[in-house]
C-alpha cells in the first residue's frame, strides 16, 4: 500500500524529516508516536502534498504509484485521506454540499456517474449512523463554530464518505473528551477492513486503547528510531520519551 524510502523533507530550508523508512500493507494499523517537534505532523503533511514542505530526498510509492508525481487532489482521489489536526472552517459551505462535491470529484476520477440525489441521501444516512454524526450539524457550514470534538467527528464523517485506501489521522485525539474519543475511535474501527490501512499519529497511549495498532513506531529527530507492537506504546506511556532519546544518543556516540 505505502512504501516510504529514505524520505527527507525541509521547511524553509530546515530539515525536519531525515530519512523515514516505512512499509504499510493492506489491512494494517500503524501508530506513529514521538515527542513534539519530532516530525510526525510533517510526515502527514508531506504525504498529503502540502507545498510549504519540500521533499529533498527519497521516494514514496502509494499503491505502486510515485506519490510525488500526483497533485494533492489526485492523491486524495486515489484514496489518500488526511484527518486534519486542525480542521479548517469554510464559511457558507454546508457539510452536505462539501461532502457531495468531494464525493463527485472522486467518482469522476474513478469514471463513475454522478450519484442520484436519493442514492446520496441514503449514503448520507448510513454514514452518519456509522460514525454517530449529529444530523443537526449537516446543514451547518463546514467546521464554522464547531467545537473541537465536532470538528474531529466531521473529519471522520468525511473519511467514511470518501472510503480511503489509506487514512492518516493526525493527532485526531487532541482536544477530545473521552466520549468524543470513543465515537471517533469506533468510527475508525467500523471503517477498518482488510483492504484499507490507517496511520494514527498520536502523543498518547489513550487513543490506542480504542484503535489497537498492529505496529507502533517512534519518531525522533525526523527518523523512525524504534518500532514494535502495541506494547511499545504502553512502555512509552509508562516511561516517557526520555529513554528513547537516551538510546538514540548512545547509538550515536
Amino acid at each position: 500500500m505505502l512504501k516510504i524510502r529514505n524520505l527527507h523533507a525541509t521547511i524553509e530550508n530546515k530539515e525536519i524529516l531525515r530519512g523515514i523508512n516505512l512499509d504499510i500493507n493492506h489491512g494494517e494499523v500503524h501508530a506513529i508516536m514521538g515527542p513534539n517537534g519530532s516530525g510526525k505532523s510533517t510526515l502527514s503533511a508531506v504525504l498529503a502534498g502540502r507545498e510549504i514542505y519540500k521533499v529533498t530526498k527519497g521516494e514514496v510509492l502509494f499503491d505502486g504509484k510515485n506519490l510525488f508525481d500526483l497533485s494533492p487532489e489526485e492523491r486524495a482521489r486515489e484514496g489518500l485521506f488526511l484527518a486534519f489536526q486542525y480542521p479548517v472552517e469554510i464559511p457558507g459551505v454546508s457539510i452536505v454540499n462539501f461532502l457531495k462535491t468531494a464525493l463527485e470529484e472522486k467518482r469522476k476520477h474513478l469514471g463513475l456517474e454522478p450519484m442520484s440525489p436519493s442514492e446520496f441521501l441514503k449514503m448520507m444516512r448510513e454514514k452518519k449512523e456509522l460514525v454517530e454524526f449529529d444530523s443537526k450539524l449537516e446543514n451547518r457550514a463546514v467546521n464554522a463554530g464547531f467545537s473541537g470534538g465536532e470538528k474531529k467527528k466531521n473529519e471522520i464523517l468525511q473519511m467514511a464518505f470518501l472510503d480511503p485506501k489509506l487514512a492518516i489521522l493526525d493527532e485526531t485525539d487532541s482536544g477530545l473528551d473521552i466520549d468524543a474519543l470513543r465515537i471517533v475511535a469506533n468510527g475508525v474501527n467500523k471503517l477498518k477492513n482488510e483492504n484499507n490501512s490507517f496511520v494514527v499519529i498520536t502523543h498518547y497511549q489513550r487513543l490506542l486503547d480504542y484503535i489497537v495498532p498492529d505496529f507502533v513506531h517512534v519518531v525522533f529527530n525526523g527518523r523512525i528510531v524504534k518500532s514494535g507492537d502495541k506494547n511499545l506504546a504502553l512502555e512509552l506511556e509508562e516511561k516517557g520519551y526520555d529513554w528513547i532519546k537516551k538510546e538514540v544518543d548512545e547509538l550515536n556516540n
Binding site: G49, P91, V93, E105
Partner: peptide, 27 residues
Amino acid sequence: DQIFYCQQRGLDEEKAVALIVNGFARE
C-alpha cells in the same frame, strides 16, 4: 490552508476557490 483542505478532499484549486466564494456569497 482552506484551499489545501479542499484539495485534500479531491477538489482542484479552481473548484476550491469557487466553492469558498460561493459559500461566502451564499446568504
